[in-house]
Amino acid sequence: MQPEEQKQLLIQQIADMMEDEAVALAKQMLAEGYPPLELLGHCREAMEIVGKRYETGEYFLPELMLAGEMLGSIGEIAKPLIDQGAGTKAKGATVLIGTVHGDLHDIGKNIVSFMLDINGYNVIDIGIDVPVEEFIRNIREHKPVVVGLSGFLTLAFDSMKETIQRIEAEGLRQGMKIMIGGGQVDETILKHTGADAYGMNAMDAVNLCKNWIPA
């Protein structure tokens, strides 16, 4: 098979959730000397197709999960073959995301992180039950253009409000957009927290970021 055919097949197999075939083909290509960085680029192309299929309602959470696994497996094989200092494609604007304090839920946040990542954003995911100070510290360090506050429980509404008030009080709000999402968040909760926008799902988060700043 010609490299171009291999490339197309790999992209198709990942996008079509053919895990065993895709991982085997990637292994074979690398063994035959296919440039690892290029191969990872193809994986990213496949992820974009997966993302589009998620956007259009063809794919759902299980497919995103499996796509992530495939990317992980292929990455594990490819990365040791990459020359140090070769560098990878520069990432776009930085989005900082975390689940607010008191809330241990992460599924929604993880999907948003995943979708932002495959849409080219530089996602800094700082985990669950994140104290206000931790958000502030990370904002200072990473200087994100968008901050995403996630929360599933109703207690998260006040944690979001508190986090946003602190961001303002620290003088960090200017030039930054804040989006919230998860659980029962709606228009009323948006006003309550003082965020710039809310989203009902991961695609909303991507679209908000795209409107605010292209990746």
Binding site: F157, Q184, E187
Partner: peptide
């Protein structure tokens, strides 16, 4: 009944 109404309304 929206929870947001019960909490903030």
């Amino acid at each position: 009944m929206p929870v947001s109404t019960l909490i903030t309304g």
